[in-house]
Amino acid sequence: MTYPIKGEHLYKRFKKQVVLDDVSLTLNEGEIYGLIGPSGSGKTTLVKILLGLEKADSGTVELFEQKPTLYAFRSLGYMAQSDALYHELTAYQNLSFFAAIQGLRGRKKKQRILEVAESVGLENDLKKNVAQFSGGMRRRLSLASALVHEPRLYLLDEPTVGLDPLIRRNIWTLFHYLKEKGATIIVTTHVMDEVSRCDRVGLLSGGHMIAEGSPKELTEAFHVSSVEDIFLVKGGERQ
């Protein structure tokens, strides 16, 4: 078993506020891992540290079982909470740029752009300016930019926020399709009906990983009807 991503004993504080307090997380190859927790629980910080965009105060991160290197980023698709697109450019130009800085070129690049555009349902909007896009379209284009170079590992920060239920379902279908092709996905969310579609979830609260396991295991272990209730149980325990 290989571990696409492994973070151990991560601490992070911003000024006096402790954001992550001894968080460890290991992803298994080919799984969809859901990182859930209320806003402000440190999900985004954890993702950024795993990516190497932020430095943990202490603890270690391994990407594909070695210290993170630029080369490892080739196999990594990141979608930030903000859309992170160039609004002056067309959707095609955006995808083309992100594909190019991931090393794609020529016909292969063009073919991949058309493929991912289709998979997020934007194939007819490629020539439009991103500035004219609706919020949902931007979100999907942002996702497409993370997919375009066929990475082995996806880090997706709230990929479905602001999308309508139908598109959301299509996107989860896409995630499962990617998983079948062998990709590993870590996705943050606070939409609870998405939790059940993950193979494993980690519950982050106040900088601690309070529970980890498959949704089914968790609900059984805590004797609750949904994963969401674990936060209530755990919250009650602490008080």
């Binding site: 990516l51 190497g52 965009l53 630029l70 980023f73 080739r74 990141y78 992170a84 800085i101």
Partner: peptide, 14 residues
């Protein structure tokens, strides 16, 4: 501010 720099940072570009 839009986060595209983060995307660049998470890619192999130096």
């Amino acid at each position: 501010t839009t986060g595209t720099l983060d995307r660049l940072m998470a890619s192999p570009i130096r």
